[in-house]
Design a protein around this nucleic acid. Structure first.
Lengths: 119, 119
DNA sequence: TTAACATGCAACCATATAGTTGCATATAAA
DNA sequence: TTTATATGCAACTATATGGTTGCATGTTAA
């Protein structure tokens, strides 16, 4: 049971989900078309998506059809990201200002950013 | 500029975001308290969160305070996950049935799952 | 000024990850 | 039955990732 976040961390796997969103129920060979990697690589990605329950499969003869399962995506949104939503609404309006006006010693206007550069 | 999905793929980093959600504006040392790893490891995770723009920092003397930036989370939800939402609503009601009733040859009731085991 | 504290930088290590290639097996078509 | 198609399994490789330790530097407090 692969972690859903980990499954979503790879661009190729997100592209596969996008393709299934456009056309559901595709075979490995179908999904492999136009991808710049081997069929085996695509198969591995699909197995990971399957393991994360983001894709369900259905064998039809010698073809393994892949179906998008959007439930875990919604779960993420509602159970994990959702709690940040209120903060986000505020953030869109005054996040910058909150940080800028945070209490700080008046003698140094962020000197360390210049000294300890590049973070 | 680290990918937001990749930044969220690590459990430790999600825990750090949770801690910042509970108490915003913590220092590295503060966030390190109670974590079963070195301070440097936590610092690396925070740098990744910073690089993904999920955390903003503000130097205050010798302390580097970390602030949650929930904007990219909302962006993910609305620009990427959001498009799956309609499908998800349907899925919660009849996803299983859709797959089960998908057209298939009547002679084989998913024989390959048994032969090619363990997917 | 000296000592303690907060953080950064760099080198290093073990393992996970994304990819490859070769070959085996099951199904479908000729 | 033979051939082509669709997929799986296994071994291997290169690089990314998460972690460590040691030391340097900047800031605060005694």
């Amino acid at each position: 049971m692969t972690d859903v976040f980990a499954a979503l961390a790879d661009e190729t796997r997100r592209a596969l989900l996008d393709r299934l969103f456009i056309k559901n129920g595709q075979s490995l060979t179908g999904l492999h078309q136009g991808m710049a990697m081997s069929r085996q690589a695509v198969a591995k990605h699909l197995h990971i998506l399957e393991s994360a329950n983001l894709v369900s499969v259905h064998w039809q003869g010698r073809e393994k059809l892949h179906y998008l399962n959007p439930v875990p995506l919604g779960d993420i949104v509602h159970r994990w990201v959702g709690k940040f939503e209120d903060a986000r609404i505020a953030a869109l309006t005054d996040f910058k200002q909150q940080i800028e006006s945070a209490s700080r010693p008046s003698n140094s206007s962020q000197p360390e950013e210049k000294r300890r550069a590049g973070q």
